[in-house]
Design a protein around this nucleic acid. Structure first.
Length: 217
DNA sequence: CTCCCGATAT
DNA sequence: ATATCAGGAG
């Protein structure tokens, strides 16, 4: 795969884009439940190493109680931990979410900022979370390089890298910019539905004919 | 690189 | 029992 030409990789990428659009025609949204930008930011921060289904169970009550940056910023960490415990990594997540809210108040008038630079400077926010917010809230295209995007794009031969940021840039080379957000969401859905981490359903996969890993994982 | 960490599928 | 789940920080 390392000696494959960029043109060849682009051609395959466009086929994959086309087929995933056929499989998921509706422009797919995130599976996380939210109303506001702050809701989505908190839900995404909770989703690290946790299923979206579990996050939605927790946020169903959580997002009713915490509506603004002030609500999070003034909360006691131990009390907040109790709400989010079942999502795992709860010490870090609670500390980060409260510090993030305090940073919103200090630097952004309590609002969620709309640039990569500002987002990744928030405590507990990295490129994956930032690109999700940019794409879903601000309409700024970007690859949301989560665990599914990493695994599926590697299997599909769209990247040979392991580092999420390098994978992001590999995908920018071969996926049209207007597709970045939608393609991220479709890769994630494809990863959840078909290209599972453990036992991928290659026989039921719509892009198996262009996949260098088909029936080999 | 390691650590954080509970819930779930296999 | 073990791998994995819409990651990020030190």
């Amino acid at each position: 795969m390392t000696d494959e030409s960029l043109d060849h990789r682009k051609t395959r990428a466009l086929r994959i884009v086309k087929h995933l659009k056929e499989k998921y025609p509706a422009d797919p949204k995130t599976a996380l439940d939210y109303e506001t930008a702050l809701d989505l930011l908190v839900a995404t921060m909770l989703s690290a190493q946790c299923t979206d289904a579990r996050v939605n169970i927790v946020t169903k009550e959580l997002l009713k109680k915490y509506r603004t940056a002030e609500d999070y910023a003034k909360e006691d960490i131990a009390a907040f931990e109790e709400h989010i415990k079942s999502t795992g990594f709860y010490h870090n997540k609670a500390k980060n979410i409260i510090a993030m809210a305090q940073a919103l108040l200090k630097d952004h008038e309590g609002e969620v900022p709309g640039t990569m630079e500002e987002l990744v400077n928030l405590p507990g926010v990295g490129r994956k979370t930032a690109n999700l917010i940019l794409g879903m809230i601000y309409g700024v295209p970007g690859i949301v390089c989560d665990t599914h995007v990493i695994r599926v794009s590697q299997r599909l031969g769209l990247t040979a890298h392991k580092d999420p940021e390098k994978i992001e840039y590999d995908l920018y080379e071969v996926i049209p910019q207007e597709e970045w957000t939608g393609f991220s969401n479709r890769l994630i859905m494809h990863g959840r539905d078909t290209c599972h981490a453990k036992k991928p359903d290659c026989a039921g996969c719509i892009v198996n004919y262009v996949c260098p890993s088909a029936f080999k994982v």
